[in-house]
Design a protein around this nucleic acid. Sequence first.
DNA 1: ATATAAACGAAACGATCCGTTCCGATACAG
DNA 2: CTGTATCGGAACGGATCGTTTCGTTTATAT
Lengths: 202, 202
Amino acid sequence: MPDTSHADRRRSSIGARRNPDAEAAILTAARALLAERGYAGFSIEEVARRAGAGKPTIYRWWATKADLLIDVYAAEKASHMALPDTGALWSDLLAYTRALWGFWRDTPSGSIFRALIAEAQTTEAALSALRDKFLPDRLRDLRHMFERAADRSEIRASEIDDLLGLYIGFNWLHLLTDRLADDAPAIERTARLIAGQPPGGS
Amino acid sequence: MPDTSHADRRRSSIGARRNPDAEAAILTAARALLAERGYAGFSIEEVARRAGAGKPTIYRWWATKADLLIDVYAAEKASHMALPDTGALWSDLLAYTRALWGFWRDTPSGSIFRALIAEAQTTEAALSALRDKFLPDRLRDLRHMFERAADRSEIRASEIDDLLGLYIGFNWLHLLTDRLADDAPAIERTARLIAGQPPGGS
DNA sequence: ATATAAACGAAACGATCCGTTCCGATACAG
DNA sequence: CTGTATCGGAACGGATCGTTTCGTTTATAT
């Protein structure tokens, strides 16, 4: 098993072009650091130390911390989540929410996303990236789930955007307050509320 | 002989108890600093400088930056927001949401709240303060609105907590992505969704 | 009247991180 | 061979953190 956690021996220039090894080492170190200590323990200094890279190398390729976070998240997106299709919106939401919360809990992705949201409150560029790139991406994926439900007449087509907003806000609230325990009853109740299913039905 | 004709430049102890002048000066300085520079330019150092206070005085009364932010926000909110009671949940929500978004837009409170949430992503103590102190306070106020609705049989009593969570998440999402324009139609649609009112009804 | 206790602001501390700027070494491109 | 852009290392000036020390101030307890 390859050890990707520690720095390699001195890694020098490979000429007048970007060194992919350095880039990979930096992204890996950033990911590991976020996984271990979250946003609080995340600094360019520490990433450079772990990656065996110089700070100038990092600043050369990522102008801001947000840019680095974005690339780390993009690399992480390799393990992306599949959309469920259970035949009913409320059970789709139940399955997706439990998978999403687990994904946020069990990978660095939760910390990365929290870091991005926090960074967006400080940096205008990070806010733009969050609002105009991440949010539309997530909405685009999830929208299909709601569109299928509208096709089945479970919800009105005109409600799709608003229900999506409610659902995203629900997930953000739990992420940002660190309440991602697998609280199945609460998730199920909320899934039913959003899907317009009466309690107790199946 | 004490000089009561004009304020001394230096503000000293008034005995073995908290000096209200110092507290007021610190809260005022923090509020002004957040209004001027937002979370990015907010530091304890600068608050102390502006307030003419010592850092130990701040740290003596506010263990973390989050505790200070919470007090600034609380002082701000008490004077600006009242709970509506229109007789129907959806119109209560409509009125409250428009007032809240305006409050966030037109006072430093939006910046303060954003700062608090961001701080909670970097500091465990701030997260606890937000989740265990601040949020319950906010929920307690809003809960009355939903309890009245349950008394009128507009919603089920068992749904109150979950609907509250959806409503809070909706507001957070818009605050954190800086989408607080007075989008009356969107607010109205979401208020109806949460209150379980069909579109177009009154 | 006096001593105690706690608050006050100022100043300095060690530490961390920021973003930048040097430097010598490296290796491809022309 | 020369030029150029990269690499990591080191150090910088600056900011902020949270803490500690110090002398001063004033209400309260004795």
